[in-house]
Design a protein around this nucleic acid. Structure first.
Lengths: 203, 203
DNA sequence: AAGTTCATATGATGTCTATCATATTATTCT
DNA sequence: AGAATAATATGATAGACATCATATGAACTT
């Protein structure tokens, strides 16, 4: 092998890392091959040495996004008991800071409505990502003693992502913040999470 | 005037009508000028006699979509008392048939995540449409005696649109239907709508 | 040190796009 | 009927795009 043993792999990872940010900001249709390569410090021609098509690349980038996102969320609630993890996650997700940073946020919020228009590979990657998140939430809910966790979890996720999505459409800050707050409260209420329960467990 | 008095206006309306369908299916970025004109039975060159740019056109098309959508929803609950209107609207919106027909559905679901990537004119049209819908829902909620309707309404809308959005990502029909059902129940519960109340009023 | 070979760069291709200048057609008025 | 003119069509342009063929160059091997 010429070049460092893992040079190509490193480059590939760099491309995907850059793409993960830009994919959420520009969306799959406005994200150009040349642009991603330039952002990774390369020229556009080398692209097809790494990915067999733009669609395959987009699906791969989306997997990267979900993985990043998942790691980020896991870190935010590390070591907490289930109720606290849930409450913290909701506060973290349904927040002004998530609303204001699409490029670093949840891909469900950033890309959900693009989905029906994208390739099968992309849609499959998206669904897998959603399933991963659903699994995590379901586990927390079960551990927190929430009834019917398995059915409830997807609905909770949809309410959270819907709230952040819509909050991005409301230009008045106060009203947008309000939507987020009201949604947080509604979602927690649905899960039976109250301040009383949280402080009781804080031991 | 040559051509029938209102020929140009008619054509314009035809273009927008066609676009209203296609905009929701293909999204603003995949919707081409030539394509819309062809679908309206015209050739691409005439486009700029009707719209000053593609962005201006997209905003106008979005206004058309919201207007259509609003008329459709209004019709679906015509003449009902507020509680029934709300319940019917929720059942109508958070439904498999809405999920399966993006081209005829709510633009919030179809276009929400495209929003941050579009022109200012487009975003403004979107927000205006959302405000219109919020107003209608708020009124129903107030009439139905729901507390704090004004704050709650946007959160309800976000939960509804989020549910339909996410349901489009889930390939397993049963699971997807489940998400919709669970969400309908959750939303109605939040509004204090029960079957008992609905049947009591049916008089 | 020179050759080998893989990773990347250069440059080209053809397709698609929005936009616009100009030509053509359709209709109404005189 | 035919001139006048408004609505649409034709055709061109320039830029963006994905994709690919080929050239360059870096670093390990012997």
């Amino acid at each position: 092998m010429r070049y460092a043993e893992n040079h190509k792999d490193e480059t590939r990872k760099t491309i995907l890392k850059v793409a993960a940010r830009e994919l959420r900001e520009k969306g799959p249709d406005r994200l150009g091959v040349a642009e991603v390569m330039a952002a990774a410090g390369l020229t556009h021609g080398g692209f097809y040495a790494h990915f067999k098509s733009k669609d395959a690349f987009l699906a791969e980038a989306l997997r990267t996004v979900f993985a990043q996102s998942r790691a980020k969320f896991a870190k935010a609630v590390e070591g907490m008991p289930a109720e606290h993890a849930l409450a913290t996650f909701i506060d973290f997700y349904v927040s002004p800071s998530h609303r204001d940073n699409p490029g670093r946020g949840c891909p469900i919020v950033a890309l959900n409505s693009d989905l029906p228009r994208q390739s099968k590979a992309f849609r499959e990657a998206f669904e897998a990502g959603v399933n991963g998140l659903t699994g995590v939430i379901t586990k927390w809910m079960e551990d927190a003693g929430v009834e019917n966790a398995c059915n409830l979890a997807p609905s909770i996720i949809s309410a959270m992502s819907g709230a952040v999505s819509l909050s991005r459409a409301i230009s008045d800050r106060t009203l947008s913040d309000n939507l987020l707050e009201t949604s947080r409260d509604g979602i927690k209420a649905r899960l039976g999470i109250t301040d009383a329960i949280l402080s009781k467990r804080k031991h």
